[in-house]
Design a protein around this nucleic acid. Sequence first.
RNA 1: UAGGGCGUCGCCAAGCGGAAAGGCAGCGGCCUUUGGAGCCGCCAUUCGGAGGUUCGAAUCCUCCCGCCCUAACCA
Length: 587
Amino acid sequence: MPEGQARFRRGGRCHGAVEGRHEGAGSDFIRDIVAADVAAGKNGGRVQTRFPPEPNGYIHIGHAKAFLLSYGVAAEHGGKFNLRFDDTNPTKEEQEFVDGIIEDMRWLGVDWDDRLFFASDYFEQLYEWAEFLIREGKAYVCDLSTEEISAYRGTAIERGGQIITPPGKDSPYRNRPAAENLGLFRRMRAGEFADGSRTLRAKIDMAHPNLNMRDPVMYRILRATHHRQGDAWCIYPTYDWAHGQSDAIEGITHSLCDLAFENHRPLYDWFLDNLPVPHRPRQIEFSRLNVTHTVMSKRKLRRLVEEGLVRGWDDPRMPTLRGMRRRGYTPEAIRAFIRGVGVTKAEGMVDFAYLEHCVRQDLNLRAPRAMAVLDPVRVVVTNYPEGKVEWLDAVNNPEDPGAGTRKVPFSRELWIEREDFMETPPPKFFRLAPGREVRLRYAYFVRCEDVVKDEAGNITEIRCTYDPATRGGDSPDGRKVKSTLHWVSAPHAVDAEVRLYDTLFLPERPEAAEGGDDWLSGINPESLTVLADCKLEPVLDEALPGGRFQFERKGYFVCDTDSVRGRPVFNRTATLRDTWAKAQASE
RNA sequence: UAGGGCGUCGCCAAGCGGAAAGGCAGCGGCCUUUGGAGCCGCCAUUCGGAGGUUCGAAUCCUCCCGCCCUAACCA
């Protein structure tokens, strides 16, 4: 089990302070089914699951829900988890994505030992089983075109404003003798026919109410170089024909997939029932994950990448695992999020705020703090000696005493956040203002004495005096200040670029936009803000890409791979909760 | 239309005939050298709707309504 051991089972409602949801995987209808199967001794009490990604793109947080579920279910029963690439369509699949998916899954802490498989490894077995079905009179070679197959299947048509679903019609090739089918099928494999000219179809029931059962296609002729098989094949199995049998070959006991395949389950079962398979897997469907303000289909994500709407699959705004990694999300936070949303058959849309909550909760405990001024304005401490520098003690993480302390340089000239000063402050503004005293974190109390402006009226400098008796930030006379500001010593500041992110889409449900490409119109033009003139305290110059910090009062940030020595780049993972900003926004 | 699913607080989600858990969001307050964190409190007389069965229903039955999926030689 990846995290924690406690299981929170049905009927075992937790009475203590810690509820199961936070400690273990919790329970859900799938775990209940699996537990019942184990209890009933099915499969000899064995549990084996799999995750079958198609290597045609990078995986996203929705895929994480799927493989974390399958991985978790197996782990909870001491079972096995397989990674199997579903590479049955050579025209769309690439090695690059195989490598990327493996990397992303490992990052999330998933382990499959030596059980890395490819559906293409089973092509020969699948072929043999296809011949078996032909000999049994349960599959036939069909010469109908795509359009004809669709028409014969009984595709829905509109008649007088009503949609009618006509029954299917048998293909004229449906009753070819087995021997003829066998010959034709072998010639299909041998490459004697043109692409798309024939298919092998299962002979099931053209009147079946479930369209998937109306003689589904098992093989199509397709001359394309496969990323692993090269040009060894010119016929390729369809998903329906490959999937259940691959599960059977691998000894999968519980084949978990999303609701889209619920309609396919009768077919999944039919193949297994009609073949001499070594094992009988069981398919169970659950609802896929949706998160507000983003899109979750590989097709759409690919579109964003290809049209340059984002900077790549690993753009920090993307819901891809590489994007989230670059954004600074931790594997632990993602796992907590997936655990938290649960597993059901109800299709929902999880609030992005919940994802943010999960990262904050994790990072609050682990991220070392540092001071960074994102939008700097100069402060001169007029009564502080010129040239003097003091290295003051700062706590690295108030949530973790073990994180220790560090030294922060203080001097006469400082940077503070432009928004932390107001010449004419509104009633609830606690920060710096003319005549007002505030605390500079870990340093001194300072009082604003004067403001210097340029001819345009912009503030160029805030002049303050400090109280030497408040060194470290405490006043011996018990004097209180209303706020504490973060700051950076100007001569010691590290110049940096900081990238702020907002949701990629403005609407909660971008895909709800009517038809076509309308979902693209929901793109947030301000999803990325680049701050080129930020001032960081010295320790941050030593940050390594991937290093996460809390910039005090500003949020969680991660060092980006674009960083160079002396000019670090940071991505904002998430803001801190900000009740002041909220109060202002509600005015 | 046919077939398959789903409908419990703004968002997730427990609940499985004895009578509405929890988390997120929101709202108050306490505390605070991060307007962060933490802590305390509030937040569904009601479970898509209507009937019915029952001493008792979110849980069982009937009908109705709404939403999603499939109708690729994609997965």
